[in-house]
Structure formats: C-alpha cells, structure tokens
Design a protein around this nucleic acid. Sequence first.
DNA 1: AACCCGGGCGACCATCGGACGCTGGTGCC
DNA 2: GGCACCAGCGTCCGATGGTCGCCCGGGTT
Lengths: 220, 220
Amino acid sequence: GDNTIILSQNNTSASFPLNLNSGTDPVLILQNNGHLGNAVSALMGLPDNNYSSDQQAKTLKKQKRRRNKDSTGEDGEGRQREHPFIVTEPGELARGKKNGLDYLFDLYEQCGKFLLEVQHLAKERGEKCPTKVTNQVFRHAKHSGAGYINKPKMRHYVHCYALHCLDVEQSNRLRRGYKERGENVGAWRQACYYPLVTMAKENGLDIEGVFNKHEKLRIW
Amino acid sequence: GDNTIILSQNNTSASFPLNLNSGTDPVLILQNNGHLGNAVSALMGLPDNNYSSDQQAKTLKKQKRRRNKDSTGEDGEGRQREHPFIVTEPGELARGKKNGLDYLFDLYEQCGKFLLEVQHLAKERGEKCPTKVTNQVFRHAKHSGAGYINKPKMRHYVHCYALHCLDVEQSNRLRRGYKERGENVGAWRQACYYPLVTMAKENGLDIEGVFNKHEKLRIW
DNA sequence: AACCCGGGCGACCATCGGACGCTGGTGCC
DNA sequence: GGCACCAGCGTCCGATGGTCGCCCGGGTT
C-alpha cells in the first residue's frame, strides 16, 4: 500500500569542509506511492560530461538494443517500474502515480547508508573497502530489498542532488520555479547543472572538486 | 649501449605526512644495462592479497595461454625482455646481464612522473584526472618510449618499493641480508611483505591504510 | 479507448584492475 | 654446448563505470 515517511531535513550531515547549506530545518514529508523501507539524509553530485580519453578509432558499432519482454505475471504482486518523478517544491507530496523530489534526494541518502554497510562488511572481512558508491553498493542495495535503487537512475540525477546539498536555497528556488512553469523533470534536471558550474568557477575548482569538498557528495 | 645514471637519493620527496624515511642521503648509482631515458624519485606499494569480494560460483575455466612466438627479428635492434633483477645492496651496481634494486625502485619514481604527466594532460583537456597509476599511465609510459615499464612488473614489486619508502633502513638491511645469503629475487620479494604487515599493525591500519599515509605510495 | 510523450532502468560495452603461466634469458657445469 | 631454473611480461578474465535506448506507464483527449 502507499507509504508516507516523515523526516527532519536537518539531516545526518555533521558536515566538515565547505558546507554551503543554509539552515532552514523544516520537517519534510517524503513519499513513495507504493513501497519504501527506510529513510536517511545525504548529498551527492557529478556532471554528465562524457569526455573519455585516448581518442582513437571509435568502432562506432550501433546496434539495436533488445529487451526481454518477459512481462509474464511474475508474481502478480510488486510494481515493476518506479513511478516517474515530477518537479515538486520542497515538502510537497507528489499526487497520483508520481514521486516527488524529496523522495529522490532521500534515495541518495539511502545509498550513502548502503555504502556504509558495504564498507563495514568489507572492513570486517579484510576485503578492499570502497570509498565511493560502486556497482557493489547498488548490488547490496538490491539484495537488501531496496530494488527501487538502481545505478542509471542515481547517476542520472546526481548533480541535482549535488545542488540540493551545496545550496538548498537555490535548489528550492529552482524547484519552485520549474514547478510553477510546469516544466518536466528532464528540463529541471538540466537546469540543475548550470548553478553547479557557476559554483565551481567561483571556487576555482572543477565540478569534481566541488563534490570532493562536501562530505556527502564525496562518495559520488 | 650501457647506460649509467647517477642521482641523489635525497629525492623529490618533499614529503607531507608520516614520512618514515630516515635520512641517509648518499649518492646512488642506478643502471639499466641496456637503455634507460630518465630518472627521478618516488615511492609506492600495495600488497598482493587477492581477497576479492562477492564470493560466488567461480567458473574456474583454466585454459592454455599461448604466446605469439613472433620472435621475428623485429628490427634487429632493441632488447625484447628486460634483464632480470638480482638482489643488490643499496648503491650496488648489478654486474652482467642483470638489473639492481635501485633501478627497480627508480622505475616507480618514473611511473610517478608519468602519472603527473597524464594528470596534467587530463586537466588541460578537461578530462577525468586519475589519482592512481592506472592502465592509462602504463600506456602513456609505453608511448613515451619507456617500454621497459609494464603493469605486471610494477604490480609485482610494489610492496618492495613500499618498504623502501616507509623504512629505508629496514629495507636496506633486508637487501644486504638476502644478498649475503645468496637468495633469489623471488625470496627477497616475499620477505618484503612481512615488515609491512607489522608496520600496519603497529599503526592500527591495514596495508592500504599505510600506503595512503605516504605521499609517494598513495598513487599505488 | 487510443495515442503519444517522456522517463525508468535492463542490459550492453569499453576499459579497468588483477594475475597466470609461457617463454626464453641466464648462469652453471 | 647443454640444461635447468626462474622471472619478465603478453595476454587473458571477471568486474567496473558509464550510458543508450527499449519499453511501457501515465496523462490527455
């Protein structure tokens, strides 16, 4: 059934260097219209640039991708795909078969928690210990029942989360603006990128540098 | 023709945290009996442990490895394989068709330099910038004419280099001991591992932690 | 009901980190 | 010269990071 979560935004931060968050500490209402298991707080980021080095013969093999249309009942229970995100303003609950942005950001917090678990497990097994959210972390999340977390999604919105972490005020303003104008999630996502570039420039860093300065973004 | 290089061991260090080097600063004589191009100074390390996570069905497919026996003259010039290392004491020049350990350690310094070059190139191209010695760095080294540097070799001796960086005295003692006893390189290499474990334990860290504390080992 | 928009995420791919073991250089007899 | 030892490094492999685009959910008409 539907599931509503209430949590304070005054998150687990306990920041460290360069915390650009300004501190309005309202109570947020999250929601996943369908499931959910836990909730936390964290931040993230990374640009979508696809530079890649070693320019060479790029075989340029473009072939059709096929999907296994195995839509066979499965179990009858459990949604297949997450509801799409819509642009919501801070604290706003998404209506209908949609998810809001507070919920999106909470997924990043959850990933941070899963990373911590993976790190602890690795440590006590004497294995190599990741400092970033890796494939292994996504796998762990899935195995832990958080099937609604997946790599493509998290990577896709990472710089939106980053803006949220680095400057909540500006992030909130953007959300309200895009909601008001009735823009879709894709447009909002794009828009999140530019403030980050500006912030990086102001601090004389690249985007990655900005991420690394922030406790919660460092793991992305 | 043969090539001898003289350089001060008081290296480019300019350390930073936890520099365990004790500071005898003699003049070292390096040598690669056959080529060589430049020389620097740096340090490195990493254990050979093969933990790996996600224990699973390990397909265990063992198949014959084949080599391209293309020993065709090539050019007539240029050695194919590096001369093997022998255990030499500090400052000792390897005799005959052998290379000494000072030369081995210098290769790690060279790798550090190649990493810096790759980092600068990446930065000015706006590409992703490696913090570690990666495949790309080995590729760059090869392209830059340092064909005598290759990944398997560098990984193989990394913890020997680490010991050298973290405690030259002990490293030197070990070298002298193993040379005296006429042990082969493989035995010496193995022996380098244990002091590192002890050092890690003393500092309450794992091997990787020890590496990360040292300016020059961090890149491995 | 039918249509179309847009976005979730399965699955693909280049590349990586890591290591095995063949090949042949090297010293000894 | 012949042989046995042993180590250099070509080459392979599982897994990763990164992304494309198929497929379908969802709102609208």
